[in-house]
Each structure stands twice: as C-alpha cells, then as structure tokens.
C-alpha cells in the first residue's frame, strides 16, 4: 500500500486515501499470530519450516530470477520462441520451477502492445520468477483499477505510452501465472546477458513499469 500511495500524485492520492479499510489492520496481525501459535502448539506447523519458507523468498527466490529469463530472451531468439510457446519448460531450463509457477504463460510487449498482470480475485503471482508479490499488487485499489483504467494506473507508476499502443491486462483468475517479457531498451546492443538482466525491474515483468535505460 505504501509503495503504491507514494507513486500517486494530486487528487488521486486524496481519492485513494479514503480506502484505508483495505490496509492490513492490527487485528489481522493479531489473528495471524494467534493462528500461528495454535498451529505450532498442536504440532501442525514446524516453526523451523516457516523460517525456511520466509528465508527462501526473502533471500533466494525473487525478481532476479525473472530478470535472467528476460535477458536470455533478449539475446537468444530461439530461447525467446521457446519462452513464448512453452513458458513453463523454457523457464525450467534455469531451474526456476515449482510452487505458483507450475503453469506459466509469457506475454510479449511490442511497439503495438503493452501487457500488465493482475489477480483481481486475490494475489496470484509467479513466485519462482518474481518471488512474493509487493503489497500494492495485493491492494484493492490496484486490483480494481488496473482492469478498468490501465493507462491511468500505468501513468501513476510514472509511465506514459503512446496513444496507439494497445494495453492488455491479464487477470490470473485460474491456475495460469503470467510474466511480461518487456521490450529490450534502446542503446543496449553492446551489453551482454548479465548486464542486460540488471536493467530488468520487477515492475517491468508485471507490466507496471518498463526496463531501466542503460546508464540511467
């Protein structure tokens, strides 16, 4: 929520600040704590496994995985073709498999089409390539507005596209998880795969952003 709010300007901020009821409440935190201690006391959850899960997504699995996939697709046309025709298999070539990435689809940005991803029903997100979703991705304002006015939402993230670019929003309502393949930035012909990966931001792979420009 904070990240999303920080990106908003002018009257939008005022409108959305009324949506405070969507922010996590201390009551929710208390409920989570109560549930956790109950599950641990009953022996249904191993606290060491919880720590391991948190550590995995805090330090090992995150958007750097997706950035490697994108950079490979930019330098290797055969890999790009595999990624667009069978994303799960192409991503598995890097070993990025598993929970919430079992059935992947990659959608490609072009000069005519810009793609954005949402889960209007909850917070579905491709964990093996992007890690866990940012808080704004799970917030009601993002989920409600991106399907109705994607161009305005993108502008609030700081990006304005030409009027003739079609925006496609992918709502992950079932078990398919989506990753955006952004366009390779101009002026990067001399960069190798590793340097290209550094330009690929998390938001560029959700479609709420674009890759960084070199030396920007």
């Amino acid at each position: 929520m904070f990240v999303y709010h920080a990106k908003l300007t002018g009257c939008r901020t005022e409108v959305l600040s009324k949506h405070k009821h969507n922010e996590p409440l201390p009551e929710t935190v208390l409920r989570v704590k109560a549930l956790e201690s109950l599950l641990v006391e009953k022996g249904l959850v191993d606290p060491a496994a919880l720590d391991e899960l948190i550590d995995t997504y805090e330090t090992r699995i995150g958007p750097r995985n997706g950035a490697k996939v994108v950079a490979r697709a930019w330098v290797d046309p055969a890999y790009r073709d595999r990624l667009l025709s069978d994303a799960s298999a192409a991503i598995a070539e890097f070993g990025f498999t598993g929970r919430q990435g079992e059935d992947m689809v990659v959608v490609e940005n072009t000069p005519q089409v810009h793609n954005m991803v949402v889960c209007t029903l909850c917070s579905c997100y491709p964990w093996p390539v992007l890690g866990l979703p940012p808080v704004w991705y799970k917030s009601a304002p993002y989920r409600a507005r991106v399907v109705a006015e994607p161009r305005a939402v993108l502008a609030e993230f700081g990006y304005t596209l030409a009027d003739d670019v079609e925006i496609r929003v992918w709502d992950s309502t079932a078990e398919v998880r989506y990753l955006v393949l952004p366009m390779r930035p101009a002026g990067t012909q001399d960069l190798d795969e590793e340097l290209l990966a550094e330009l690929v931001t998390r938001d560029a792979m959700i479609g709420t952003g674009l890759p960084r420009s070199p030396r920007a």
Binding site: D171, S172, T173, E175
Partner: peptide, 13 residues
C-alpha cells in the same frame, strides 16, 4: 468509460 484500445484477458472455465 471504457477504452477501445484496452483489453482484459480472463482465464475462464
């Protein structure tokens, strides 16, 4: 209020 140059793709059974 919708835009002809935007589209939403929804996975439906």
């Amino acid at each position: 209020q919708g835009k002809a140059d935007t589209a939403v793709y929804v996975d439906l059974f």
